[in-house]
């Protein structure tokens, strides 16, 4: 199972699409690792600098409809290449969400009010998230505050996370 703990990258915008996460011109790369330098290269978000803001981060917290657009699994791959194994948002585009779990990564939806609170309490600070998969809680902390947030994950999604992805699961079963 992959690591779902670490420092948070806050992306304060809805509808961040797959072309922003990894532009189409890089889809000709033949290995996942080659994608690494291009993560969120075209993201339209004032103040965001992909060259400085991604390094050292392991978690993305963002708003609604993250990952909309193309089916490219290069989007989860480029996040994983950069050490980001979990995205927390109000909700996700279907294909992106499925791609995350298929890779053994996590895409977790939280209520808009909870996302709002995460932004209010922790955005702009040196915040860390710790995932407890047994109890299904996140602990989010910075120098001032520490809070526990429950989350839900589908039974099957959890199996994929534990199995490390859909390929080995499916091949053993069907």
């Amino acid at each position: 199972m992959k690591n779902f703990n670490g420092k948070i990258l806050f992306l304060d915008r809805s509808d961040i699409n797959t072309d922003e996460i990894i532009p189409a011109k890089y889809l000709t790369e033949l290995t996942k690792a080659a994608l690494k330098p291009y993560c969120l290269e075209d993201l339209s978000l004032p103040g965001f600098d992909p060259k400085k803001d991604i390094a050292g981060k392991s978690v993305i917290v963002t708003r609604a409809n993250f990952g909309c657009g193309s089916s490219r699994e290069h989007a989860p791959w480029v996040l994983e290449c950069n050490g980001i194994n979990i995205v927390i948002a109000e909700n996700f585009a279907r294909i992106f969400r499925q791609n995350m779990f298929n890779c053994g990564l996590m895409a977790i939806s939280l209520e808009p009010a909870v996302i709002d609170e995460l932004f209010k309490l922790f955005a702009g600070t040196d915040a860390t998230l710790t995932t407890d998969l047994e109890n299904k809680t996140f602990t989010v902390s910075n120098a001032k505050t520490s809070k526990v947030y429950p989350f839900t994950i589908g039974e099957f999604d959890l199996e994929l996370v534990k199995a490390g992805g859909w390929v080995s699961y499916a091949d053993s079963k069907y």
Partner: peptide, 28 residues
């Protein structure tokens, strides 16, 4: 490919998927 939904015009269920789903589709 996300625009696989096009084929629903024929009364089919057609969905875009990522590479892992595609890989399992090819295999199984």
């Amino acid at each position: 490919d996300s625009h696989t939904c096009t084929h629903g015009a024929f009364g089919a269920f057609a969905a875009g998927v990522g590479t892992t789903d595609l890989e399992v589709g090819i295999l199984k």
